[in-house]
Simulated scan of single mutants.
Amino acid sequence: MDLSNFTILYVENVRRSIDFYLPLFEREPAQISDGFALFVSESGAKFGLWAKHDVTPKIQGRAAGAMEVVLEVSNVITLQINHTKWRELGVNIIQEPIELDFGTSFTAEDPDGHRLRVFCYEKS
């Protein structure tokens, strides 16, 4: 079995989540329906948004905040540019850029409380 390059987040409101992710990803979803949207990157990685009330089997417990979606950038300058852009867009930044064992990163939350970590292996 191969590991997939497909992440799905369960969201309260698909349209609100599309509006949140559009300026971050700088691309339109490749697919949209009432309860689902799919973004596809240049590399072919897929990122889905699924209305949590439509998920089968039904969600038990908390659907957000217990994991992270990690978005890798090539260097610290690109990381800083994204941090500034996201802050200007009003994204909730829960960890400012910081140097950690694995490199430099910052962490944000989407409207449903999903954690988004932007990182690069480079240290500042």
Rank of each mutant, 00 (worst) to 15 (best):
M1P: 01
D2G: 13
L3P: 06
L3Q: 12
N5A: 12
F6C: 05
F6R: 14
V11A: 04
V11P: 00
V14Y: 00
V14P: 00
V14E: 00
R15I: 14
R15T: 14
S17K: 01
S17W: 00
S17E: 05
D19C: 01
L22T: 14
L24K: 04
L24T: 01
E26L: 06
E28M: 07
A30T: 12
A30G: 07
Q31Y: 15
D34Q: 15
G35W: 05
G35N: 09
A37D: 06
A37K: 02
F39I: 02
V40L: 08
V40N: 01
V40A: 02
E42D: 15
S43Q: 13
S43F: 09
G44S: 05
A45N: 08
A45L: 08
A45V: 09
K46C: 09
K46R: 15
F47Y: 07
F47Q: 02
G48T: 11
W50V: 03
W50L: 15
K52D: 06
D54F: 13
V55L: 11
V55G: 02
P57Q: 01
K58N: 12
K58Q: 11
K58T: 03
Q60D: 13
Q60R: 15
A64V: 03
A64C: 11
A66V: 06
M67I: 05
M67A: 15
M67L: 07
E68H: 12
E68N: 10
V69F: 04
V69M: 10
V70W: 12
L71N: 02
L71C: 08
E72C: 04
E72G: 13
E72I: 09
S74E: 15
N75Q: 08
V76T: 08
V76F: 10
L79S: 05
L79R: 03
Q80K: 15
I81Q: 12
I81S: 13
N82F: 09
N82H: 13
T84I: 02
T84W: 01
T84Y: 00
T84M: 04
K85H: 07
K85W: 01
W86M: 06
W86Q: 09
R87L: 08
R87V: 08
E88Q: 15
E88T: 13
L89M: 03
L89S: 00
G90M: 08
N92Q: 14
Q95S: 10
Q95N: 06
E96H: 12
E96F: 04
I98C: 06
E99S: 13
L100T: 15
L100H: 10
F102S: 06
F102A: 10
F102T: 05
F102K: 02
G103I: 14
G103R: 03
T104S: 13
T104K: 03
S105E: 14
S105A: 14
F106L: 05
F106Y: 15
T107W: 01
E109G: 00
E109K: 10
E109M: 10
P111H: 10
D112Y: 05
D112V: 01
G113F: 04
R115M: 11
R115C: 06
R117Q: 13
V118K: 00
V118P: 00
V118H: 03
V118E: 10
F119E: 06
F119S: 08
C120T: 15
C120I: 08
Y121Q: 12
Y121T: 11
Y121D: 11
E122R: 01
K123I: 13
S124N: 12
S124W: 08
